[in-house]
Amino acid sequence: MRRIILSLSVSLDGYFEGPDGSLDWHLVDDELHQHFNDELRTMSAFLDGRVSHELMSAYWPTADANPEASSAEAEFAGIWRDMPKYVFSRSLTKADWNTTILREVDPDEINALKAQPGGDMVVGGATIADEFRRLGLIDAYRLYVMPVILGAGRPLFPASGVRSDLRLVETRTFSNGVALLGYEAGRGGE
C-alpha cells in the first residue's frame, strides 16, 4: 500500500510561512535541492492544496527553460511536470499539468488512492497537510528544519486539539545547516 508523506520546510520555531507569507528564509541550495529531487522522483503523486498548487504551477512547468536555473532546478521541473497531481480546491475549475481537482479531503477516497499500485505520495501545503494529519491520513513526516527563528508567521500545525504521536526514524544534517527530521506515524516508544 502506498503511504502519504508530508514533506515540508519549517522554521526552528515551527512556522511554515513567515510574516505576509514570505518564504525567503528557505535555504534551498544545490545539495538540498538534489536531495528533494532524489526523494520526490520516487513518489507517485503530489497532493496539494490550491495555494501550493498555484504557487508550483506558476513556476515549475517551464523552469527548465530558464537559462539561470541550476541543474537541480531544471531536473525538478521535469519531475513536477510528469508527476500526477491532486489538488484539493472548492474554487478551481481547471488545472493543467496532469492535475486532478478534488473538492474535499474524503478519507475513503484518499485510502482508495493509497491502495493503488505505485510509489508513495507526498502531501504539501500547510492547510491541506493539517487536514490530512487531523484525519490520520499521513503515514510519515519529513520536516526540513531551517536554521532560522522567525518569531511570527503561519504555524505548520495550528492548534487543533488532535494529538499525533510520531516515531523518529531518520535525521540528516545538510551543509547549509538545514536538519531533516523524519518521523513515522505511531506512538513514539513503539
Results as ranks from 00 to 15, higher is better:
R154Y: 01
R172A: 15
E75I: 00
V10E: 12
L137V: 08
S89D: 03
G153A: 09
R50L: 07
I110A: 05
G18R: 07
V51I: 14
R167G: 02
D96P: 09
H35A: 13
A45K: 05
V105G: 02
M83S: 01
L92F: 08
D130W: 06
D96F: 11
Y183G: 00
S9V: 08
I138G: 00
E131F: 06
G177N: 12
P155N: 10
R154V: 15
L6C: 11
Y15Q: 06
I138F: 08
R81T: 11
L102V: 15
A74Y: 02
K85F: 07
Y183A: 06
R154A: 10
I79S: 05
L40S: 05
A185Y: 13
V169A: 12
L113D: 08
G118Y: 04
Y141T: 02
T62R: 10
A140V: 01
A77W: 03
I4R: 04
F76W: 08
W25Q: 07
G14P: 12
G189Q: 14
L143E: 08
R50C: 03
G161K: 07
W80H: 06
P158D: 13
V162S: 04
S57D: 14
S160G: 15
T62W: 09
H53E: 06
A65M: 03
G136H: 09
M43A: 15
D120P: 00
L113P: 03
F88N: 05
L156I: 08
Y141P: 08
L40F: 12
L166N: 10
D64W: 00
G18S: 10
S91L: 04
D130Q: 15
W80C: 02
L113H: 09
Y59I: 08
K94R: 14
S160F: 09
F88P: 06
Q116C: 02
G125S: 03
S44R: 03
R154D: 04
V122D: 03
E170Q: 14
R81Y: 09
A159F: 10
T100V: 12
H35I: 05
